[in-house]
């Protein structure tokens, strides 16, 4: 596990997050494993990322904090469902591992990677970005604070330079 991944696990625990919803990504693997193994956290694997927006709105209705893990391709699956987080004022921290940028092998990942920030901003989600490992803890804990206290959706994009070169 990389240090920045450990920092995400620690930030999730420190924020009192009880539900973690995810569509798997290689960069999130240790975080997903830690959440699945933690009896204090209900981890839910999704068939598509948009389910997570509604799932975590339901969690908040019931008094629990949640966060959503996905890769950038999943952002495209979320756009219409984000109306729920906006219209209902639901906290929604989204941790997004980027594809389609530095050292990308698969050109099919590039269109959604390039559209990730503009699409999120167009629907009204605040976007933060971490390029280096030492930025991750602060970016993630800050996004949690903003989401839970401001009751709004916030995305943290974890850059491909951070998550590393994919081996084929």
């Amino acid at each position: 596990m990389e240090a920045w991944q450990q920092h995400i696990i620690e930030a999730i625990a420190a924020a009192g997050i009880r539900q973690v919803a995810y569509v798997p990504d290689a960069g999130h693997t240790p975080v997903i494993q830690a959440c699945e193994a933690d009896p204090a956290i209900e981890a839910t694997v999704l068939t598509t990322e948009e389910e997570g927006i509604a799932l975590l709105a339901g969690a908040w209705l019931g008094g629990q904090r949640g966060c959503l893990l996905m890769q950038s391709s999943g952002v495209g699956n979320c756009i219409n469902m984000l109306a729920l987080a906006k219209a209902g004022g639901f906290p929604l921290p989204m941790l997004v591992t980027m594809r389609g940028e530095w050292a990308e092998f698969n050109g099919w990942q590039v269109p959604m990677g390039r559209a990730t920030t503009p699409a999120l901003e167009a629907i009204g989600v605040m976007v933060h970005r971490a390029e280096r490992a030492e930025e991750v803890a602060d970016a993630v804990s800050g996004a949690f604070d903003l989401a839970f206290h401001g009751e709004l959706p916030v995305a943290v994009l974890l850059a491909q330079r951070l998550t590393g070169r994919k081996r084929w």
């Binding site: 009880r18 539900q19 919803a21 209900e42 839910t44 999704l46 948009e50 389910e51 997570g52 927006i53 509604a54 799932l55 975590l56 709105a57 339901g58 969690a59 908040w60 209705l61 019931g62 008094g63 629990q64 949640g66 469902m81 729920l84």
Partner: peptide, 13 residues
Amino acid sequence: GGAVPMGLGLALA
């Protein structure tokens, strides 16, 4: 499409 996952998150909470 969000009603079932919203109910699921609420039920788990």
